[in-house]
Amino acid sequence: MHIIVCIKQVPDTRQVRLDEKTHTLIREGVESIINPYDLYALEEGLRLKDRFGGKVTVCSMGPPQTESSLREAISYGADEAVLLSDRAFAGADTWATSYTLAKGIQKIGPFDLILCGKQAVDGDTAQVGPGVAERLSLPYVTWVRKIEEIGEGRIRVQRLMDDGYDRLEMTLPALLTVVKEINEPRVPSLKGKMRAKSQKIPVYGAKDLEADPDLVGLQGSATQVIRVFPPPRLKEREWMEGTAGEQVGKLLEKLTKLKLIV
């Protein structure tokens, strides 16, 4: 089985803030990590390899420093890594990103399954997985919390929904986006860490992918960010004073006035 896992290098969003004066992101001192959801995708790929044999290839589009995340993925157990990097790719929205990833995956060659994280924590869009699937004409299921079965060219999965879950079956090859309920990621092994240091990671640019220059990067993006600003100031807050009984009395009076309780 050949499994391709798409991973994205993201800034650790817990540390990201906006400069209130310049309205730009303060990136200094913010660590880059593998998008947390992609670690679950990687783990699921490794588990499938453990069960069925084959190999796991990780693929990422990003600036040259993304290589460190690919090496980290190798330390977890990925067999191969491919970096899609080119100045022309910069500024891509999800539309251009999914085009570029699809081109990269075609270059990697035949596969049985593509795994993506549920969403990337920087953009929180969850659009790239379905976009890649569509561009490769693959069936897909999002929010997968369990792979029940694989065999005879089919895969059976559970999809986490707002009110429970659905069970679905697809033909392979296919694409899944996974949620964190699917597994508990392993830690990198010593052997993996050694291999991560020395392994060659090919870097493909727009030409190598035979990508249409009008469809990649900023040029290929259908959407455009025109303004970035801090979240609106928080609402006025009122403290309820007094004993527990008094506080509750005051609160219920307020809520009744607002018609929030009857």
Binding site: P11, T13, V16, L18, V121, D124, T223, V228, F229, P231
Partner: peptide
Amino acid sequence: RPAFGGNIMATIICPAK
């Protein structure tokens, strides 16, 4: 929309499509 885990807001347009 909010981005970066709710730490910033961004206004986005789709000018040509």
